[in-house]
Simulated assay, not measured.
Amino acid sequence: MPEIRPESLDAIDRQLIGALQLNARESVAMLARQLGIARTTVTARLARLEKARIITGYGVRLSQRVVDGGLQAYVGITVQPRSGKEVVRRLAAMAQVQQLCAVSGEFDYVAWLRCESPERLDQLLDQIGSVDGVEKTTTSIILSSKIDRGEPI
């Protein structure tokens, strides 16, 4: 099977992925109706997208009220030259770090954190700031989510 690259996805693949991002539990029959294609075509496309690791899984996104007063924050992290690999390794060991992205611009990395309390967030930020190679952090606490479509393609 030839490799599928994101830029080679056709309109139906993108519509299928978009429908799943809105509701990953949608039935194959309903997806077929929405897209105007046969159920067997939907099933085959899903299998192809999964095999090519374009779709890497299906999950559950919890609402903020279920997180029970927990906090979420984004932290911009600036690191010293040649210390990125070690900083990434240390942050990977912190369970509250939900995602870490290398970015362009003001920061080297942006981390998405989830904590159970403001006190725990404060401790975690101190822990991140004390990692060898971390030069500076800037934190933004998430007040509310206005749009969440999951992972973009």
Results as ranks from 00 to 15, higher is better:
Glu50Gly: 06
Thr78Ser: 14
Ala52Ile: 08
Leu49Phe: 04
Thr138Glu: 11
Thr43Ile: 08
Val97Ile: 15
Leu91Pro: 10
Gly76Gln: 06
Ala29Gly: 10
Gln127Tyr: 03
Ala95Leu: 07
Ile37Lys: 13
Lys136Gln: 13
Gly18Lys: 12
Lys51Arg: 14
Ser140Tyr: 03
Ala102Glu: 04
Ser8His: 12
Ser144Gly: 04
Glu116Pro: 01
Thr138Leu: 12
Ala19Pro: 01
Ala95Lys: 11
Gly18Leu: 09
Tyr109Asn: 01
Ile55Tyr: 13
Gly69Ser: 07
Glu26Trp: 09
Ala19Val: 02
Asp13Ala: 09
Glu26Ala: 10
Ile147Ala: 05
Leu9Lys: 02
Val131Glu: 04
Val67Leu: 15
Gln21Leu: 01
Gly105Met: 04
Gly76Phe: 02
Leu124Lys: 00
Phe107Gln: 13
Gly36Gln: 11
Gln34Val: 07
Leu35Glu: 08
Val42Asp: 00
Leu121Ile: 03
Gln21Asp: 00
Ala73Gly: 09
Ile77Thr: 05
Glu106Val: 11
Val88Glu: 13
Gln123Gly: 02
Arg48Phe: 00
Leu46Ile: 12
Tyr58Phe: 10
Val110Lys: 02
Ala32Arg: 10
Val75Ala: 11
Leu46Met: 14
Gln98Arg: 13
Ile37Thr: 10
Val67Pro: 00
Glu3Phe: 04
Val103Met: 02
Glu119Met: 05
Gly76His: 05
Asp13Ile: 08
Leu100Val: 10
Cys101Tyr: 15
Val131Met: 07
Val97Ser: 07
Met1Cys: 02
Glu50Asn: 11
Pro118Trp: 01
Gly129Val: 09
Thr137Ile: 15
Ile37Tyr: 09
Leu113Glu: 08
Leu20Tyr: 08
Ser140Trp: 04
Gly76Leu: 04
Gln21Val: 00
Val60His: 08
Val110Phe: 03
Ala92Asn: 11
Thr41Cys: 00
Gln80Glu: 15
Ile55Cys: 12
Gly76Tyr: 02
Leu9Glu: 07
Ser8Cys: 00
Asp13Pro: 06
Glu50Gln: 15
Gln80Thr: 11
Gly150Arg: 12
Ser83Thr: 15
Ser63Ile: 00
Gln80Cys: 02
Ile4Thr: 13
Leu9Gly: 06
Ala11Leu: 12
Leu71Val: 09
Val75Ile: 12
Arg45Tyr: 08
Asp132Phe: 03
Ala95His: 07
Leu125Tyr: 00
Cys101Ala: 10
Ala32Leu: 10
Ile128Arg: 09
Tyr58Glu: 02
Arg33Met: 00
Arg61Cys: 03
Ala24Gln: 03
Arg120Met: 03
Leu124Ile: 13
Glu106Lys: 15
Ile37Phe: 04
Ser144Asp: 12
Val42Cys: 03
Met1Arg: 10
Leu20Cys: 14
Met1Thr: 03
Gln96Ala: 15
Arg65Trp: 06
Ala44Gly: 08
Cys101Phe: 15
Arg39Gln: 14
Glu50Leu: 11
Ala29Lys: 15
Arg82Met: 07
Ala73Leu: 13
Lys146Ser: 05
